[in-house]
Design a protein around this nucleic acid. Sequence first.
DNA 1: TGAATTTCCAACCGTTCGGTACAATAATAC
DNA 2: GTATTATTGTACCGAACGGTTGGAAATTCA
Lengths: 204, 204
Amino acid sequence: MKKIEPRQRGRPRSFDRDQVLDSAITVFWAKGYDGASIDDLTRAMGIARPSLYGAFGSKHGLFMAAIDRYAATHGSRAFRAFQSEPDTRKAVAAFFETSILCTTLRGKPRGCLIANVVTETAQHDASVRNKLAGMFAETDAAIANRFRADQAQGHLTDDQDTESMARMVVSVTHSIAARARAGASRKELSDVADDFMSAIFPPR
Amino acid sequence: MKKIEPRQRGRPRSFDRDQVLDSAITVFWAKGYDGASIDDLTRAMGIARPSLYGAFGSKHGLFMAAIDRYAATHGSRAFRAFQSEPDTRKAVAAFFETSILCTTLRGKPRGCLIANVVTETAQHDASVRNKLAGMFAETDAAIANRFRADQAQGHLTDDQDTESMARMVVSVTHSIAARARAGASRKELSDVADDFMSAIFPPR
DNA sequence: TGAATTTCCAACCGTTCGGTACAATAATAC
DNA sequence: GTATTATTGTACCGAACGGTTGGAAATTCA
């Protein structure tokens, strides 16, 4: 059953979906879901209201699409840095460093869209709550898996609790996101990360 | 210059300020600032709109009053538990335990009003931002002071970095608040707290 | 070239928002 | 009792909200 892809008919879209989505992300990130009005969004995205509704269906649909794109770009950067570093300790350090970078990008809102905005809308929106739970569980499990594999290869000692370590690593990013939003500097965030690097990987 | 307190004239207020404030706190806590409409608030508080505006001036004024009362009641419980426990390690454990309790109260919204709601409104409201910064700085300093005093009395060794410890303790509560809001159980939060108790106070 | 299809733009829809005007009510001051 | 002061409930205000309509514009298919 080959799905035939007919050539697109009608007037072509004058904007790039991912590009306007990036603009929408910034608005939601800065103002929250309720705080971002359709006018705010269309102004930032550079498109008119019916184009927004044509492409995303509703404000809620746009928000869900923005979450997905945020997770696929900014949100996963720290985790990708973590995965691509072979040494366990350095991987965690890279995870923290990248989290700090992503929550303090110049020209972008402070903190993390997921931690700061999505968790609020999740309170009274089941579809957002489900998506959020899925993302959290994925990250937790992936980090714990990495630690387990490191332990199997002898890079972590058997007495180290990999699940506990994974929980702590994720927890540190919660504080980084919270502090970043409250206005902490990169230096302050690095201090926090260093504190926990020493605590989680105590010098022998 | 004794301030003369004239007896109250005119029709007396039919509601207790702190009592209706507690109801307002719950609404803001659950729905956020933007998400809480005046109708939501007056319905929960059991008063009419003009009474709200008479007593608090505006939605913003009500929110500021709610923050103050939250900080004076729920928000400071964990810190009070921390201060009233003489043993350093037990004080931190009590701090975490009480944080977990306060962010998972039955019949109340999950998480912490300050961490979850105030930090968002602080983004685009200078008066809230200032209040928030003051509260954060107070807590950080008070915890670090306590550790310094403990160290001076020999309850902490000189090689322990009291500032770093204070930062970590506060950071853990950030994660507790974030996880609680995302729906974590008390057991899960206790696990996180235990992880960090072991990491911050390593068994000798 | 003309029919079909899709997007784009201006204007508009009903609803809900935060906030108020006004008159009735309930207390104190004289 | 009468004047004064403050709170109460109803009803309303303009503005902003999320979302839609209808026709002009731009493209493909025939």
